[in-house]
Design a binder for these strands. Structure first.
Lengths: 198, 198
DNA sequence: TCGCTACTATGACCACTGTCATAGTCGGCT
DNA sequence: AGCCGACTATGACAGTGGTCATAGTAGCGA
């Protein structure tokens, strides 16, 4: 992911997201985040006076924005503007990572959703907002491909749900097959939703 | 779920699954499991000499068997033996729970998958096995409905992936809409896979 | 140079975790 | 009765967590 050498604050948010998506929220320690970011421990309470909850919230929000921005990039890179191709590109990002780096990490937003109980409600709202900032541009991209407006939102939900679940299965089985399977099975359904011009 | 008043050992496994699916693996303490099960703390080391890893492994395995057995029940209860109806029944179990008890809990297997890093590899293998004991009867049920054998497995993966992801979204947004959406959108695709007799 | 602000650096605190060790209790078998 | 195994009941331990308190440093405007 885009690890620009920005200030230590952004590095800590980025590191938090990395560690959360690998170990979960509860298992990720504040000290560990600082060490991973190469930042001093004292900076934690300076930049994040709200404590762990604030840090996790910002990491989740960062992940949501990242996913949302990726949608536009994917659409630009498509040979044909078909929903199935967009979905394939979204999934390919994960198969590539798993082939390259192993199955150690998942989606940070999913991790925060699963164990947001160890933090307050603010974390849960951050998770909900992250999914929204992901789904909204996805639905708009589908609409731009000719999917009727009333179905674009539903298909965006379906795509994100299926992707998240397939990531889960792939991590569990340490095999990218769930990811490739859902791309193959879901593709025709997605393309069938475009209003054919001809 | 079927909380029969069996021995304290089974109660602890059941309680572990309950707490894990609500708070995650790392956030669930051994003492908390014992208290939730109404079992003495000393029984933990007696029944689970392998420690937390053993307890979590058995809880995950229990959840996998539970999900697998539910498939047969769902098939029996269907008015029409259609894949979409089976999927709707699987999802309805979650919408019912969320309508009734709130969005506090998710799938224990998913929770264990997300933060299995705090335990050894045995937990990860238990998670993979749990998904297998869930998908196998599901694929067989689809085959029994007329889905060709080579697609039954793929559709089972798709159904589980989509369900797990929709559970995730529903918990994040505290709304059952993702669940109902995927049922509506995925249903036609599932039914289209049955080899029509006529 | 002073003084102020941003940031860094450590140490301490308390709560809590998983695990172990040691007794204690109860029931049934001989 | 006597004994033994299964199970229960506590206490302690070492480790780690997040957070707070306090002090130190660097840069910069006046």
């Amino acid at each position: 992911m885009g690890e620009r050498q920005r200030g230590p604050r952004e590095r800590m948010v980025f590191s938090a997201a990395q560690l959360i998506r690998r170990d979960g929220v509860k298992a990720t320690g504040m000290r560990e985040v600082a060490a991973h970011a190469g930042a001093p421990r004292g900076s934690l309470q300076h930049y994040f006076p709200g404590g762990k909850e604030q840090l996790v919230g910002e990491a989740v929000a960062w992940a949501g924005r990242y996913a949302g921005k990726r949608i536009a990039r994917f659409v630009e890179g498509l040979a044909e503007p078909l929903p199935s191709a967009l979905f394939a590109a979204m999934v390919a990002q994960w198969t590539d990572e798993y082939d390259r780096d192993g199955f150690g990490a998942g989606c940070p937003v999913a991790a925060a959703t699963v164990d947001c109980a160890c933090l307050g409600d603010a974390t849960r709202e951050a998770v909900a907002a992250a999914f929204t900032t992901w789904r909204t541009p996805l639905a708009e991209a589908l609409a731009g491909m000719g999917v009727p407006a009333d179905r674009a939102g539903s298909l965006a939900t379906l795509m994100i749900s299926t992707l998240e679940g397939a990531i889960l299965l792939a991590r569990a089985e340490r095999d990218v097959r769930p990811l490739t399977t859902v791309v193959r099975e879901l593709g025709p359904l997605l393309d069938a939703a475009v209003a054919r011009p001809a």
